[in-house]
C-alpha cells in the first residue's frame, strides 16, 4: 500500500484511551466493548461512505476491531486510538476499492475549470446554478448525483473527501489517517471538490466549468 505510509506527527492518545487499551491487552472484554461502543458508529459510517454497502462496512468493522484486539499490545499511545482505528478503516476500505473492477474511467480533468492565458474563466458567462441546487437537493436528485460523482474519484481522493467533507474531520487529522501532509490533503481536496462541482454542473445540464 504505497500511498499509506502510516503515522507521522500524530496526536497522542488520551490517558483514558491508553488505560482502556492496556486493559484490552490484558484480555478485559469490558474495555474492548467500551472502545467498540465509542468508535464503531464512526467506523461504520466511514466504511459505508467509502464502500457504499452495508455488507462490506460490516466486514471492515470486524477486521478493524479484531486488529484492535490482536495488536493492542503493540499500541504505544503515540497516536490517538481514534486516528489509529480510522487509519485501519481507511486502509482496508481503500484496498478494497483498488481491487474493484473499475467502470469506465472518468477523466477528472474534463470536469475541472478551464482558464484563458490571462487567467479569466474560459467559459463565459459562468452560470450560477446554486439556487437550482437547493431545489434538486429537496428531491434528493443531487445527493444521488453526488454519490455517483464521489464514486468516480480515485480511492485516495475519495477517502480525502469522505474524511474531510462528509466526516468533517480537520485536514490535519485527515492527513494523519491517510499518511498525507496537510498541503497534500488540501490540494487533493480542492481538486476533488472542483471535480464534484463540474460533474454536478454537467449532470444538472449546465456547463462543466
Amino acid at each position: 500500500m504505497p500511498e499509506m505510509p502510516g503515522k507521522a506527527k500524530d496526536r497522542p492518545a488520551s490517558t483514558n484511551e491508553v488505560e482502556l487499551m492496556r486493559d484490552v491487552q490484558h484480555g478485559n472484554t469490558e474495555a474492548f466493548e467500551q472502545l467498540f461502543a465509542r468508535y464503531s458508529p464512526k467506523i461504520y459510517r466511514q466504511a459505508l461512505h467509502l464502500l457504499g454497502n452495508d455488507a462490506e462496512a460490516e466486514e471492515i468493522m470486524q477486521e478493524v476491531f479484531l486488529t484492535l484486539y490482536e495488536k493492542a499490545s503493540t499500541f504505544r499511545g503515540d497516536a490517538a486510538v481514534s486516528t489509529w482505528l480510522y487509519r485501519l478503516t481507511a486502509n482496508a476500505a481503500i484496498s478494497r476499492l483498488r481491487r474493484r473492477t473499475r467502470r469506465q474511467e472518468v477523466l477528472i480533468d474534463d470536469y475541472l475549470p478551464q482558464f484563458q492565458a490571462d487567467g479569466h474563466h474560459r467559459e463565459q458567462p459562468v452560470i450560477d446554478w446554486s439556487h437550482n441546487l437547493e431545489q434538486s437537493l429537496m428531491r434528493d436528485e443531487t445527493h444521488q448525483l453526488l454519490r455517483q460523482a464521489i464514486d468516480e474519484l480515485r480511492p485516495l481522493d475519495k477517502a480525502v473527501v469522505v474524511l474531510s467533507d462528509l466526516e468533517e474531520l480537520p485536514q490535519r487529522e485527515t492527513g494523519e489517517i491517510l499518511g498525507l501532509s496537510v498541503a497534500a490533503v488540501k490540494a487533493r481536496l480542492h481538486r476533488a471538490r472542483l471535480f464534484l462541482r463540474g460533474r454536478l454542473a454537467a449532470s444538472l445540464g449546465y456547463a462543466s466549468s
Binding site: S40, P41, Y44, R45, L48, H49, P113, H120, H121, Q124, P125, V126, I127, D128, W129, S130, L133, E134, L137, T142, H143, L146, R147, I150, V161, D165, L166, E168, R193, L194, L196, R197, L200, A201
Partner: peptide, 24 residues
C-alpha cells in the same frame, strides 16, 4: 463569473456535507 463559480463551489460543498447515511 467568479461570483457564480464561488456560489456553485460552495453549494456543491454544502450538498456534499449534507450527504447522510443512517446510523449503524
Amino acid at each position: 463569473d467568479c461570483d457564480a463559480f464561488f456560489n456553485t463551489y460552495r453549494g456543491t460543498l454544502r450538498a456534499t456535507r449534507s450527504l447522510a447515511y443512517d446510523n449503524i
